[in-house]
Write a protein that binds this DNA or RNA. Structure first.
Lengths: 340, 340
DNA sequence: TTGAAAGCGATACCAC
DNA sequence: GTGGTATCGCTTTCAA
């Protein structure tokens, strides 16, 4: 059995409360050096480690954050998690990680579980999560931060990237290469990110006076096969696009596959730009031109913000908006007339 | 404030202990239906959820597992974590995730932290971890399972793949393609996995009566740049190898880059086999021939085993050995004489 | 400068 | 069939 504070107290010949004060460096404690030494010695001799469960019960704080993500094998998340974990650890918090597999029922179950386990706050990285989640969190008054998603229901409390801007940068890049037949394989359009990237696409076409061609906008999803299917469709059009702005890198990868199956060369016949700059993006051939999103920072800032919220610190801004940056690699090139 | 068991008891006009028995479905409880109903109603009306921290203190069990991994952004781990998380969740356990960045000090700090937080057991996925970790765990009597690593200091308690066998399969594949100049970019040789793969390489050369050429064995490491450097060296040899068995997929990727920089074609001029079949492996060009390791299963089985250990269930075998399987893709091809 | 005791929210043993 | 009460390990207020 591990030693308790009582054991330490007995060994040092003092009361447990005194031991507690010494451990927690109670500022309004004046104690004789000799007594303190006895306590410290006893702690060392017994290899005493305070029981965090008991502390949590007493202090009503577990120093633990719950993080809910849809799928850890999606290459978007590991960097985000790592950032969150670092920020949490630096502030003495641990991370409890929950994977929902995009299943709303699991999400709800985890929410309840984490609430019962009395985590001090929630990091929600699930783009699909129904607003009932946000509602639940708000009603219960639990501190939370949305990661890479925002909500109309709530003032701030999120760390996001400016997707309208990022999509604009992507489309600008293609336009500057001379492309006018620019298609967009959109993400899921009931998510903020999906919607905003579409908006950025349309706004930039507009700005550039490129007419919006409805056939060039196809709603896909965020997975590779969504990109594959959508691209097959686009490339089957009578007048196919010469460039595709994909909702994310996975989608761009699917587009790459579809193009190569049809014997098209990238970027010779088709330029493709992705979104997020997932680690995979630079490994594939051709390496993906994409919008680099600071994934690590996103996680870090979210966890930092959350711990501040928890500790009641004043936060200037509880809505952090990060900017994406264009990274030009090999999947985009100048537009040129096609043989047909 | 959330309702407590006392609130429920008052509202139902019973004693807290009775509420507890109803909640936990105490088998040796006989209770009037009417009383039970009153309690259940009170629970619903107050939206009562038991405080897991208080339960944990009383029951001396947190139903939480600590999982320590070196680097979540290494594509090896997300699948493993996902498997572990699933198995844990199915058994009512949560996962506390800790990222050490390969830093032994962080590892120790996390070990202490998790111990203070009274996790019920440890999942250790750190190949580099010093044996002091295993020693610590053993001395304290904490249940633990090593993932993808074993230890001489301990009888079983691990889920590993048979790396000697896997490496053998990889080298066999190359030999069957007619290669005789087969090099090995080894991993870190003070890890079990690094050592075993080297052993498999040597045993198979032996079996095939291919003489072992010391210059063809270069110790690298497990990172991409290790593979890059080692391969540059191998390809600079007077008589360079025609095939490389890499310690893992990341190393194989580095080899790929080195080869293409030198104008060599894969598999035309050089065949490369990786290890693990990380998600990345099938995405790169040429797609990697590799040894598929059941990453998800590894995590799943480890967590399952650990929960059994924790709950005192009899486990037939506390050392689970999985087999890798050859996946032939595009990075390997028949040997042929080179121009020089 | 230190001690005593209440209480955090549950469970479980022992009564009756 | 249900209640009383001690207890898990720690913190904190109030006393002395």
């Amino acid at each position: 059995m591990a030693a308790t504070i009582k054991d330490v107290a007995e060994r040092a010949g003092v009361n447990p409360s005194t031991v507690s004060r010494v451990i927690n460096e109670d500022p309004k404690l004046s104690i004789r050096d000799e007594t303190r030494k006895r306590i410290l010695d006893a702690i060392r001799e017994l290899d005493y480690h305070p029981n965090a469960v008991a502390r949590s019960l007493r202090l009503r704080s577990t120093r633990t954050l719950g993080m809910i993500i849809p799928d850890i094998t999606n290459p978007f998340f590991p960097e985000v998690i790592k950032g969150a974990e670092s920020a949490a650890a630096e502030r003495g918090f641990s991370l409890m990680l929950c994977n929902t597999d995009e299943d709303p029922e699991k999400e709800k179950a985890y929410l309840d579980l984490l609430a019962e386990k009395k985590v001090d706050g929630f990091l929600m990285a699930t783009a699909f999560s129904h607003d009932s989640t946000v509602k639940f969190l708000k009603e219960k008054g639990y501190p939370f931060i949305l990661v890479n998603r925002s909500s109309r229901d709530v003032s701030g409390r999120c760390v996001v990237v400016d997707d309208v801007d990022g999509a604009g940068v992507a489309v600008d890049h293609l336009a500057e290469l001379g492309h006018t037949r620019i298609a967009h394989v959109a993400g899921v359009l009931f998510t903020e990110t999906g919607l905003s990237r579409l908006e950025g696409y349309r706004l930039t076409l507009n700005k550039r006076r490129i007419p919006f061609e409805p056939d060039y906008m196809v709603e896909g999803g965020f997975r590779e096969k969504d990109g594959y299917r959508a691209t097959r469709r686009l490339l089957g059009l009578p007048v196919p696009p010469t460039a595709i702005f994909a909702a994310n890198d996975l989608v761009a990868l699917g587009a790459l596959t579809a193009a190569s199956e049809l014997g098209l060369r990238v970027p010779g016949d088709l330029s493709i730009v992705g979104y997020n700059d997932v680690p995979l993006a630079e490994k594939v051939t051709p390496a993906l031109t994409t919008i680099h999103v600071p994934l690590y920072d996103m996680g870090y800032l979210a966890a930092e913000l959350l711990t501040k919220l928890i500790q009641g610190e004043e936060v200037a801004e509880d809505r952090v908006v990060l900017k994406g940056e264009l990274v030009v690699r090999q999947s985009t090139g100048p537009a040129r007339e096609r043989a047909g």
